Simulated scan of single mutants.
Amino acid sequence: MKKPYIIGIAGGSGSGKTFFLKCFLEHFKAEEVCLVSQDDYYFPVADGMTAEENKMYNFDLPSTIDRDHFEQDIESLVNWQPITKKEYTFNNPYAKPKFLEIKPAPILIIEGLFILHFKKIAEQLDLKIFIDTDEEVALQRRLKRDFQERGYSHDDAMYKWINHVVPAYKEYLLPYREVCDKVVTNNTHVAQDIIKITDGISADLRQSVLN
Protein backbone atom coordinates (compact mmCIF):
# COMPACT_ATOMS: atom_id res chain seq x y z
CA MET A 1 0.00 0.00 0.00
CA LYS A 2 1.20 3.49 -0.73
CA LYS A 3 2.36 5.79 2.07
CA PRO A 4 -0.37 7.83 3.79
CA TYR A 5 -0.58 11.52 2.95
CA ILE A 6 0.81 13.24 6.05
CA ILE A 7 -0.45 16.62 7.23
CA GLY A 8 1.23 18.58 10.00
CA ILE A 9 -0.85 21.13 11.89
CA ALA A 10 1.13 23.41 14.19
CA GLY A 11 0.07 26.34 16.29
CA GLY A 12 0.86 27.92 19.60
CA SER A 13 -1.20 27.68 22.76
CA GLY A 14 -4.54 29.42 22.24
CA SER A 15 -4.22 29.42 18.46
CA GLY A 16 -7.42 27.43 18.03
CA LYS A 17 -5.85 24.19 16.75
CA THR A 18 -8.49 22.08 18.47
CA PHE A 19 -11.40 23.86 16.81
CA PHE A 20 -9.64 23.89 13.44
CA LEU A 21 -9.07 20.13 13.71
CA LYS A 22 -12.68 19.51 14.73
CA CYS A 23 -13.93 21.36 11.64
CA PHE A 24 -11.37 19.68 9.42
CA LEU A 25 -12.12 16.12 10.58
CA GLU A 26 -15.83 16.55 9.97
CA HIS A 27 -15.11 16.46 6.23
CA PHE A 28 -13.88 12.85 6.35
CA LYS A 29 -15.10 9.41 7.29
CA ALA A 30 -13.38 7.70 10.23
CA GLU A 31 -11.55 5.26 7.95
CA GLU A 32 -10.18 8.08 5.75
CA VAL A 33 -8.17 9.97 8.34
CA CYS A 34 -6.34 9.41 11.63
CA LEU A 35 -4.92 11.90 14.11
CA VAL A 36 -1.84 11.77 16.33
CA SER A 37 -1.43 14.52 18.93
CA GLN A 38 1.91 15.51 20.37
CA ASP A 39 0.17 16.21 23.70
CA ASP A 40 -0.28 12.47 24.29
CA TYR A 41 3.51 12.02 24.43
CA TYR A 42 4.44 14.13 27.44
CA PHE A 43 6.72 12.35 29.88
CA PRO A 44 4.64 11.65 33.05
CA VAL A 45 6.86 13.87 35.19
CA ALA A 46 4.01 15.63 36.99
CA ASP A 47 3.04 12.58 39.07
CA GLY A 48 3.46 13.51 42.70
CA MET A 49 4.27 17.18 42.04
CA THR A 50 3.05 19.79 44.47
CA ALA A 51 0.97 22.66 43.10
CA GLU A 52 3.99 24.96 43.39
CA GLU A 53 6.28 22.52 41.58
CA ASN A 54 3.69 22.13 38.84
CA LYS A 55 3.49 25.90 38.42
CA MET A 56 7.26 26.21 38.03
CA TYR A 57 7.78 23.21 35.75
CA ASN A 58 8.09 24.20 32.10
CA PHE A 59 5.95 21.92 29.92
CA ASP A 60 6.64 24.13 26.88
CA LEU A 61 10.00 22.61 25.99
CA PRO A 62 10.80 19.88 23.43
CA SER A 63 12.53 17.87 26.18
CA THR A 64 9.16 17.29 27.92
CA ILE A 65 8.01 15.15 24.97
CA ASP A 66 8.91 11.47 24.56
CA ARG A 67 10.11 12.11 21.04
CA ASP A 68 11.30 8.54 20.42
CA HIS A 69 7.87 7.11 21.25
CA PHE A 70 6.16 9.83 19.20
CA GLU A 71 8.31 9.09 16.15
CA GLN A 72 7.94 5.32 16.53
CA ASP A 73 4.14 5.56 16.60
CA ILE A 74 4.14 7.78 13.52
CA GLU A 75 6.36 5.26 11.75
CA SER A 76 3.92 2.47 12.66
CA LEU A 77 0.97 4.38 11.20
CA VAL A 78 2.96 5.22 8.06
CA ASN A 79 3.54 1.47 7.69
CA TRP A 80 -0.20 0.79 8.15
CA GLN A 81 0.12 -0.63 11.66
CA PRO A 82 -2.33 0.48 14.40
CA ILE A 83 -1.07 1.94 17.68
CA THR A 84 -2.38 2.08 21.24
CA LYS A 85 -1.63 5.10 23.40
CA LYS A 86 -2.62 6.27 26.87
CA GLU A 87 -4.36 9.64 26.74
CA TYR A 88 -2.61 12.58 28.41
CA THR A 89 -4.86 14.42 30.89
CA PHE A 90 -2.79 17.59 31.50
CA ASN A 91 -2.21 16.81 35.18
CA ASN A 92 -5.91 16.91 35.95
CA PRO A 93 -6.28 14.64 39.03
CA TYR A 94 -10.00 14.18 38.34
CA ALA A 95 -9.60 13.01 34.73
CA LYS A 96 -9.32 9.30 34.09
CA PRO A 97 -7.10 8.71 31.05
CA LYS A 98 -8.42 6.55 28.25
CA PHE A 99 -6.43 4.16 26.11
CA LEU A 100 -6.53 5.39 22.55
CA GLU A 101 -6.48 2.96 19.65
CA ILE A 102 -5.43 4.76 16.49
CA LYS A 103 -5.87 2.93 13.21
CA PRO A 104 -3.90 3.87 10.08
CA ALA A 105 -5.68 5.72 7.28
CA PRO A 106 -4.93 7.27 3.87
CA ILE A 107 -4.60 10.70 5.53
CA LEU A 108 -2.47 10.96 8.68
CA ILE A 109 -2.66 14.20 10.67
CA ILE A 110 0.07 15.06 13.17
CA GLU A 111 -0.55 18.06 15.39
CA GLY A 112 1.42 19.84 18.07
CA LEU A 113 3.70 22.66 19.10
CA PHE A 114 7.01 21.04 18.21
CA ILE A 115 6.21 18.98 15.11
CA LEU A 116 8.04 21.41 12.81
CA HIS A 117 10.99 21.61 15.23
CA PHE A 118 11.33 17.82 15.35
CA LYS A 119 13.26 17.39 12.11
CA LYS A 120 12.50 13.69 11.56
CA ILE A 121 8.77 14.40 11.75
CA ALA A 122 8.88 17.64 9.77
CA GLU A 123 10.67 15.94 6.86
CA GLN A 124 7.81 13.46 6.46
CA LEU A 125 5.06 16.06 6.15
CA ASP A 126 3.39 16.41 2.76
CA LEU A 127 1.39 19.45 3.85
CA LYS A 128 2.37 21.87 6.63
CA ILE A 129 -0.40 24.06 8.10
CA PHE A 130 0.43 26.85 10.54
CA ILE A 131 -2.39 28.20 12.72
CA ASP A 132 -1.51 31.85 13.36
CA THR A 133 -3.18 34.01 16.02
CA ASP A 134 -2.59 37.46 17.52
CA GLU A 135 -0.90 37.16 20.89
CA GLU A 136 -3.69 38.90 22.84
CA VAL A 137 -6.36 36.64 21.31
CA ALA A 138 -4.28 33.56 22.11
CA LEU A 139 -3.76 34.75 25.70
CA GLN A 140 -7.48 35.21 26.34
CA ARG A 141 -8.20 31.72 24.97
CA ARG A 142 -5.41 30.26 27.10
CA LEU A 143 -6.61 31.98 30.27
CA LYS A 144 -10.16 30.75 29.74
CA ARG A 145 -8.97 27.19 29.25
CA ASP A 146 -6.59 27.24 32.22
CA PHE A 147 -9.35 28.51 34.56
CA GLN A 148 -12.08 26.16 33.35
CA GLU A 149 -10.22 22.95 32.49
CA ARG A 150 -7.02 22.93 34.51
CA GLY A 151 -7.89 24.82 37.67
CA TYR A 152 -5.02 27.33 37.50
CA SER A 153 -5.32 30.68 39.23
CA HIS A 154 -4.94 33.85 37.15
CA ASP A 155 -1.44 34.44 38.56
CA ASP A 156 -0.31 30.89 37.82
CA ALA A 157 -1.69 31.04 34.28
CA MET A 158 0.02 34.38 33.63
CA TYR A 159 3.32 33.10 35.05
CA LYS A 160 3.27 30.18 32.62
CA TRP A 161 2.24 32.41 29.73
CA ILE A 162 5.03 34.95 30.24
CA ASN A 163 7.84 32.60 31.28
CA HIS A 164 7.02 29.39 29.39
CA VAL A 165 4.43 29.71 26.63
CA VAL A 166 5.55 32.83 24.76
CA PRO A 167 9.32 32.09 24.83
CA ALA A 168 8.70 28.52 23.58
CA TYR A 169 6.44 29.74 20.78
CA LYS A 170 9.03 32.26 19.60
CA GLU A 171 11.91 29.76 19.72
CA TYR A 172 10.39 26.46 18.64
CA LEU A 173 7.46 27.31 16.38
CA LEU A 174 7.41 30.85 14.98
CA PRO A 175 10.68 30.44 12.97
CA TYR A 176 8.98 27.71 10.89
CA ARG A 177 5.93 29.74 9.87
CA GLU A 178 7.46 30.87 6.60
CA VAL A 179 8.22 27.31 5.43
CA CYS A 180 4.62 26.15 5.87
CA ASP A 181 2.40 25.49 2.86
CA LYS A 182 -0.62 27.20 4.40
CA VAL A 183 -0.85 29.84 7.12
CA VAL A 184 -4.34 30.08 8.61
CA THR A 185 -5.07 33.24 10.60
CA ASN A 186 -7.47 32.35 13.39
CA ASN A 187 -8.35 35.51 15.31
CA THR A 188 -12.08 35.15 14.80
CA HIS A 189 -14.70 33.77 17.12
CA VAL A 190 -16.97 33.11 14.13
CA ALA A 191 -17.06 29.38 13.47
CA GLN A 192 -18.07 29.84 9.86
CA ASP A 193 -14.75 31.52 9.05
CA ILE A 194 -12.75 28.43 10.01
CA ILE A 195 -15.31 26.06 8.51
CA LYS A 196 -14.92 27.84 5.17
CA ILE A 197 -11.13 27.42 5.27
CA THR A 198 -11.35 23.72 6.12
CA ASP A 199 -13.93 23.27 3.34
CA GLY A 200 -11.37 24.38 0.77
CA ILE A 201 -8.43 22.33 2.12
CA SER A 202 -10.50 19.16 2.49
CA ALA A 203 -11.98 19.51 -1.00
CA ASP A 204 -8.46 19.66 -2.46
CA LEU A 205 -7.41 16.59 -0.48
CA ARG A 206 -10.45 14.59 -1.46
CA GLN A 207 -9.64 15.22 -5.11
CA SER A 208 -5.87 14.67 -4.92
CA VAL A 209 -5.48 11.99 -2.21
CA LEU A 210 -8.70 10.02 -1.81
CA ASN A 211 -9.72 9.67 -5.47
Rank of each mutant, 00 (worst) to 15 (best):
N91T: 12
K29S: 13
H69R: 15
D39Q: 09
H69L: 15
C34F: 01
L61S: 07
S37T: 12
A30Y: 09
V36H: 00
K86P: 10
S13K: 03
I65L: 04
D39W: 10
C34K: 00
G16N: 03
I7K: 04
K17R: 11
E75Y: 09
L77G: 03
H69K: 15
V33Q: 03
N79Q: 07
D68G: 10
A10V: 06
D47M: 09
Q81D: 14
T50E: 07
K2F: 09
Q38G: 12
Q38C: 11
K3I: 05
I9V: 10
L61R: 12
Q38P: 08
N54K: 15
N58A: 08
E75L: 09
L77R: 00
E32C: 05
G48A: 10
Y5N: 11
E52H: 06
I74R: 01
K98L: 13
P4A: 05
L21Q: 09
F24Y: 13
Q72M: 14
F19Q: 10
Q38W: 08
L61D: 11
M1T: 06
F59S: 11
S15W: 01
K29P: 05
N79C: 01
Q72R: 15
E31M: 03
D68M: 10
G8M: 04
K17F: 00
N58D: 15
I7P: 05
G14Q: 09
A51V: 13
P82V: 00
S76V: 06
D47S: 11
K96H: 15
V45E: 11
G8L: 01
L77E: 01
E31I: 03
Y88L: 03
K98W: 07
I7H: 07
E75S: 10
L25H: 04
D47K: 14
H27W: 06
G14T: 07
L25P: 00
Q72C: 13
I102R: 01
I102T: 01
A51E: 14
I102Y: 02
G48N: 11
G8F: 00
I9Q: 04
P104S: 03
F59L: 12
A51R: 15
F24W: 08
P104C: 01
R67G: 08
E53R: 10
L35S: 03
N92S: 14
F19S: 12
F70G: 02
E101K: 13
